[in-house]
Amino acid sequence: MAHGSRQNPAAPDAQPEQDAGTTVELVRLRGVSKSYSRGKQRVEVLHHIDLDIPEGDFVALMGPSGSGKTTLLNLIAGLDSPTHGSVSIAGQRIDHLSSGALARWRATHVGFVFQFYNLLPMLSAQKNVELPLLLTRLSAAQRRRHANIALQLVGLAGRASHRPGELSGGQQQRVAIARALVSDPMLLVCDEPTGDLDRQSAEEVLRLLQRLNREYGKTLILVTHDPKAAEHALRTRHLDKGTLVEQG
């Protein structure tokens, strides 16, 4: 794992290693379409999307249900491949990678935060946070240290040994954020991370994301339905029926 030894987010340094040449874009989509075939029917969910997100940006992605937000996020995060067009992250094309290569790429480049936290219920918070590090060459002691630093960063150092079931929704989501951070990826993708939280917990999570962007220079993409949540981002892009709405 080339990035296994990258610095921990606790030490702010998130320069991408690849030299992106003159472009400063971290995410660069050109002419991206995505179709799903349902039986014989083909449905195009995303139409010819061009999107640039510079490094260190914090973009909120809004749009009605079914407009393709999750689909777009998955393409950027290397979970899915586009039907047409190119997806480059930090200067590297990922749209043609095999699923195995994509898995390796995700392990080192992207952190994921989901609406329903998706923690493993039988593992302690710390073990959950350690999960991505299992794929690195770090020793058990190093993994534990990195996980603890990440938990500290999200304000849950005292809960390391708790299982998800013993934590509130907001706390679980912060554990999930720690897990997304622990391998020090350049990009964090969050799909409605506050969708299942009460106002106050949501606010805490959003502040945390904001801090990760401001203090640690992480590039964030936040899918949300909630305009208040979107206000925490630096910019907001709107998606409608598979097309990015031009900004006014």
Binding site: G100, A103, R104, R106, A107, T108, F112, P132, L135, R179
Partner: peptide
């Protein structure tokens, strides 16, 4: 989730 995180 494991596969998403990059587990081969």
């Amino acid at each position: 989730v494991l596969k998403t995180i990059g587990f081969p």
